[in-house]
């Protein structure tokens, strides 16, 4: 019983950490490929948190599993679009990063 709780807590803590690491990398790292990876790491963090909710005290809840499958497909699609756009940005500007001087902020 204690071990079950512990596994759940490790999952939750790791999920939160992955999410935060992703946020940090997304903001700080300049290369677009790293940014797309960061978005995926954030997503994994959310999915870990969601999955922990599935292990209830007596019944296994199937809904979070379904949500995570849906979420994964959506994440794959968003990543594919982001990567296609990244290649296009590189072809147009010569580099796979956002220009550092944002127009106004």
């Amino acid at each position: 019983m204690i071990t079950e709780n512990l596994v759940g807590e490790i999952y939750l803590v790791c999920g939160a950490l992955l999410f935060v690491l992703g946020v940090h990398a997304l903001v700080v790292r300049p290369h677009l490929l790293v940014k797309v990876l960061a978005v995926n790491i954030m997503g994994s963090g959310v999915f870990m948190v969601l999955l922990t909710a599935a292990s209830g005290p007596d019944l296994i809840d199937p809904v979070p599993h379904a949500l995570v499958i849906t979420g994964i497909v959506v994440a794959v699609c968003a990543s594919a679009v982001a990567l296609a756009l990244m290649l296009k940005v590189r072809a147009a500007t010569g580099q796979a990063r956002l220009p550092s001087e944002a127009p106004e902020d």
Binding site: E9, L12, V13, G15, A16, L17, F19, V20, L21, V23, H24, V27, V49, T52, A53, A54, G56, P57, D58, L59, I60, D61, P62, V63, P64
Partner: peptide
Amino acid sequence: AGALGVALVLILLELPAHSGLAE
């Protein structure tokens, strides 16, 4: 990000145990 992480962990560890929509 660190502050967000700490806050998230603290809140997540308080989550109640329930069987969600299993029933």
